[in-house]
Design a protein around this nucleic acid. Structure first.
Lengths: 359, 359
DNA sequence: ATAAATTTGTGCGTATGTATC
DNA sequence: GGATACATACGCACAAATTTA
């Protein structure tokens, strides 16, 4: 059976929730409530005291009982205005720029970033997702880990999908999940770079691609596609594939063998600028020159790329803009509760000094 | 004046906190408490009821009053295993490395980072601190904004000091706050760089220092100190000071005037590597050469510094290690509830190619 | 196993203190 | 200053759950 104070409490709460009493409205005095419900002062005070603890009302001595800002107060512990961001790395390569972009947009709207990185390790990704799911977030932005492989955390992502936590992907996405995403058109990028080298007179090109993330796979597919469209050259292409877990030494020694061949390729397309910088170092160590002996291209227009010598030719990656756009989409998802369309950037060449024209 | 129920409440709470009553121990009955404190049943029930709301005790009808598992229960909703990090920038310069260092240590202990940047703007710093204070953090790591100026957010920092949120500073600290900190010995750094240039035969040195953060001021003071110890050279020193809010154009045109003088300095010490890189660009644009015409040194051993040409001579900044150490101290503060000693790193020179020996 | 005693929960009436209007 | 309204505090009665005899 419902106690008397529970009855009074329930009735008052219902009136507040229904809007009979708006925020900061004055409720009846204790004496009036005693009369209305025909209960003692103790009962009224007990009921109102409970409501006060639950932040439905506040009391002012000598003033009265008033409706608290229960909509906000109650939601503060839930809606923390925090957006989770899971990336493979925090500080390496182009990730700081992306994170800055996200921060720049969402912080102007009062949101903050809860950050976690996976170091491209699916187990750490799992922990990161679990942590994020427990963290009362308003939204979650994920750069997928090893996006080209079968992801062992799909169960968690599916949980996310059926929850109402707005989630979106950047840089890549898992194809069998339906979250919106913001990414480069890496297939076109791979094609564009290859065609640029064709146009510079290169026919024998080596592509080195990381194939455990989908960016690498798409870039490689673009490379292949470009050769397919120039069928007469196809035999001259060459591909080295690797995964993040591979020992880079092995890859470089394989590469070394290729570079020391008589019929070595005249150009190398690298999975990204970070790799390209290492490859240029390797080429130098073999007493070969870039671009005189071998041309090199990368992807992502990493900040360092314009400081090394020769300045690296590459493909633009919007980085900070991508972050801002992801932030924008995220706030749309949070505030308008709509599922926005994904954004895909078209690639643009950034030609500098690492490619030689040959005839 | 303390009310009766407050007195009873306080005494009971103190006994619980002191361990007089352990978890699940039975407290005296209401009747016994009435006798002990010579108060009415209402007063006892009020006091115990409050303690129940605060999760210090639980009551079983007919059974008695028992000590709740207040250590865990109180902390579970609070302890989110999140550490707030406020920096001036997220992705620029050496900050990604510091943040990575923090993350690397604390994430292995299951903590995450809630990040917020101030862009060196005290108003944004204020918002960041407020956001952090509302965010149920376990700890807070702050890189102070404009640490050499009078900070308008001192009230908030004082609130933090009197709260029990573990807080520590990195890179610099506000001198009148007693939080522990992790930072470089920038005074010694400034002295070291200046003396290194003395040793390379440079007597006429220009120092360019940002003076709204304490790092810049300390580096400048070290520069001054080195000249003081070589009194005969003091007249040949020259200093340009600026603040983050200053227009860099104005500073560079001032610098240009100095560089075009007949008796221009033979070396420039720059507030940090970022500035040094810009200064080298400026020197080049005046058709002067580094280090042949002018030697340049910076601070912080920014990653880019070894890629530009000439490779920049600078002072080591532990960056990632600083982050890891800050994380370590923070977890000590959180878990052992002790206030650890601050860490101050001694400076070390990183000599590369931007300084010429002259005789 | 049952009854009695104990202990907390609910509820009322009253008195006094203190802040607000 | 006076009226009003919430805050503190005491005493009492009975209900409900637990413990103990």
């Amino acid at each position: 059976m419902e106690n008397k104070y529970e009855l009074v409490e329930r009735e008052l709460k219902e009136k507040i929730l229904a809007g009979v009493y708006a925020i900061n409205d004055k409720l009846p005095t204790e004496s009036e409530l005693m009369a209305t419900y025909n209960v003692s002062r103790y009962t009224v005070r007990r009921a109102v005291g409970d409501l006060e603890n639950e932040h439905y009302v506040y009391r002012i001595q000598g003033g009265g009982i008033f409706v608290d800002d229960w909509q906000n107060v109650r939601q503060t512990p839930l809606k923390s205005k925090v957006i989770g961001v899971i990336t493979t790395h925090i500080a390496d390569y182009i990730f700081p720029n992306i994170i800055t972009g996200i921060d720049r947009y969402i912080s102007s709207e009062g949101y903050s970033i809860l950050i976690s990185n996976t170091q491209n390790n699916p187990e750490k990704e799992r922990k990161s997702i679990q942590k994020m799911m427990e963290s009362n977030l308003d939204g979650l932005i994920v750069e997928p880990t090893q996006s080209a492989l079968d992801n062992p955390n799909k169960d968690l992502y599916q949980q996310l999908q059926s929850s109402d936590l707005p989630t979106l992907f950047i840089n890549a996405h898992y194809p069998d999940l339906s979250f919106p995403y913001v990414e480069m058109n890496d297939f076109e990028g791979g094609k564009l770079v290859t065609e640029a080298l064709f146009n510079a007179g290169h026919h024998q090109i080596l592509g080195i691609f990381k194939i455990d993330d989908s960016q690498g796979v798409h870039r490689m597919n673009g490379f292949v596609k470009a050769y397919q469209e120039r069928n007469e050259l196809a035999l001259m292409s060459e591909i080295v594939m690797y995964q993040s877990t591979d020992n880079m030494h092995a890859i470089f020694s394989k590469l070394e063998q290729i570079l020391l061949r008589q019929d070595r390729p005249s150009a190398i397309i690298c999975y990204n600028d970070q790799l390209a910088i290492q490859v240029i170092d390797l080429i130098r160590s073999l007493s070969l020159k870039v671009p005189e002996d071998i041309s090199v291209m990368g992807f992502d227009n990493y900040q360092l790329s314009q400081y090394i010598s020769p300045k690296l030719s590459t493909v633009e990656h919007p980085k900070e803009k991508m972050g801002r756009d992801a932030g924008k989409l995220m706030l749309k998802m949070i505030e308008k509760k709509e599922t926005p369309a994904s954004i895909i950037y078209s690639p643009e060449l950034v030609m500098r000094d690492s490619v030689k024209e040959i005839k």
